[in-house]
Amino acid sequence: MIEAVLFWGLAAAAVASALGVVALQNPVGSVMALLAAMLATAGLYALMGAVVVALFQLIVYIGAVLVLFLFVVMLLDLKASAAPARAAASGAAGVGITAAAGWAAWVAASHAPPAGSPRPAPGVFELAFDLFGRHLLVFELTSVLLLAAAVGAIFISRTGKRRSS
């Protein structure tokens, strides 16, 4: 009973705040709506018993990624960006991506195993043994990829500065 109430509350909050990200005029409002959506999704994960995933959602997305979003948005000249030109092409792209995501969700839901006794969600130890055991190579390759991306971003921003000065 309590779980159903929590699920519908969190799901409604997630959808409403996701709409807010797109609909709000103020960019800071959009970032904060995205934060609310992330919190609601973390709540849904925790409701499914995946507490570790929920906490990492908070640490990575809310603790790091969104802070940087907010940081950049606050430095923008808000008057210049208050009324962005919304071309018809971007609207069409939005409809197309939403339709594709909806189709993917429908396919995933129709192939899902029947609801029954779910496996217990993995704790920190199970996740760690999986990441650093079975998936060690992929995990380390991903870290190399991320490092290359970070170095590349710094290189591009630095050469841009030199050219302008």
Partner: peptide
Amino acid sequence: DIPVAVLYLLALSSLGVYGILL
């Protein structure tokens, strides 16, 4: 007393920065 208390602390204390930024 949750088994992932340290992660919980890191996650919740990172929310505080939004108060200061806003």
